[in-house]
């Protein structure tokens, strides 16, 4: 019962904040909405016994990516006139939302065996740093190495695109 109450509260926060993100004119408001949504997500991860992921979500997303984004928004210091309010695009939003609901939701709801089966019994330490780390550094060592190159590329790319002189 507790899980259900928590789930519904978190889901409401998540979706509400998500809608906030895509409807606000001021990007700062959107960004704050996104932070809140990420926090709700982290809590949901915790509900799903993914402790490490929940922590990382807060640290990296809310703590890293969002700070970067807000920093850039502040840096560019946009004039409020530059930020046009949402025009008559409500229709697009509604249709996209309806599309997602109509197509994806029921497909998963009705057809997923996961929907009806009880979840697997968990081993001790499921989702903690040891279990995840063990998996990451054995079966997924190669993509992990390549991930370092992704970050390198991002750094070099940002440098190339944003530095003053070519």
């Amino acid at each position: 019962m507790l899980e259900a109450i928590l789930f519904y509260i978190l889901a409401a926060v998540l979706l509400g904040m998500g809608l906030l993100v895509i409807t606000r004119t001021n990007p700062i408001a959107s960004a704050l909405g996104l932070v809140a949504a990420f926090a709700a997500l982290a809590a949901l991860y915790a509900l799903l016994s993914a402790s490490l992921v929940a922590i990382i979500q807060v640290l990296v997303y809310a703590g890293g990516i969002m700070v970067l984004m807000i920093f850039v928004i502040m840096l560019l210091n946009l004039h409020p006139d530059d930020l046009k309010p949402m025009k008559a695009q409500g229709l697009t939003v509604v249709s996209a939302l309806m599309g997602a609901l109509v197509v994806l939701g029921p497909v998963i709801w009705v057809l997923s065996p996961a929907g009806s089966q009880p979840p697997a019994a968990l081993t001790a330490g499921f989702g903690d740093i040891f279990a995840v780390g063990d998996k990451m550094f054995t079966g997924y060592l190669f993509p992990f190495e390549m991930l370092s190159l992704v970050l390198l590329t991002a750094i070099v790319g940002a440098l190339v695109l944003a530095k003053r002189k070519l």
């Binding site: 190159l149 590329t153 790319g157």
Partner: peptide, 17 residues
């Protein structure tokens, strides 16, 4: 799929830039 995705992103990020 994970290697696939990482490779795709590595390639794409460099390509965007």
């Amino acid at each position: 799929f994970l290697t696939f995705f990482v490779g795709l992103e590595l390639m794409s990020l460099a390509a965007y830039v």
